[in-house]
Amino acid sequence: MKLIGEKGVTKVLMITAFSAISILLLIALFIINEGLPFIFKYGAGNFLLSSDWQPHLNKFGIYPMIVASIWVTLGAMIVGAPLGVAGALFLSEYVPRTIMRIVKPTIELLAAIPSVVYGFIGVMVLAPLIRKNFGGPGLSLLAASIILGVMILPTVISISIDSILAVPQSYREGSLALGATTWQTIHMVTIKASKSGIIASIILGLGRAIGETMAVIMVAGNSVNIPHSPLDSVRTLTANIALEMSYATGMHRQALFATGVVLLIVIIILNSIASVAIRKRISKR
């Protein structure tokens, strides 16, 4: 009697576990099903490489949005990666563990702040600053990059700290025993040993930046054009979906789902690279 119950439980748990994963398939399936036929019908080349986005004329070229997404994400990396890695190194190598254990969760609160609040701060504080000091409309590629750079900080810092702490203490002791300073130990030993984890943290940050929507809509300005300067207003892939989804129908809606397909593919590639990098670190130990 007991054994039958036990087998039943195992089955139920297994089914639950697989249904959790089938949700992922369901998501991919429904988005692809809605978007992919459009890509075939319209032509992948036309869709990805044309700069003509005029839904009312049935022209759906997302090239400017692709370029904007790449620039905004790179910008976020330029702002967020050095700041985040520096913070992670300081907290894990220079600061006593007790302080690190308080500061790390505090910084992780940055991830808890809703993206609309980031967008709002961008509009109220950052955009006017940019407008006053550099000219242009303020709501721009630069503003989006800075806001996204801050938004990826908790991801970069938290995962970098984990991978830096995973470096065996004996490595550091060996280096310090040879007379190296803490900084020499960091850049000659610790960074090298935790490289793949730090890179993974940055890639995960990139994934977060490229997928961010609400904050970007609020600060990037949203005009469809290929940016020539950081002060130009841009529209990213995610912003394009969210801005037009509420009123799109027919082919226009399919084009937005196709944009979602492009986004989904990019994100899954980025996350796979990151998870390979993290796993490499674990298997090396």
Binding site: L26, I27, F30, I31, L204, G207, R208, I210, G211, E212, T213, T238, I241, A242, M245, L256, F257, G260, L263, L264, I267, I268, L270, N271
Partner: peptide, 11 residues
């Protein structure tokens, strides 16, 4: 975990 929320919105 890595899928952006706009994709969840679309789905």
């Amino acid at each position: 975990a890595g899928i952006p929320s706009i994709i969840f919105g679309l789905f």
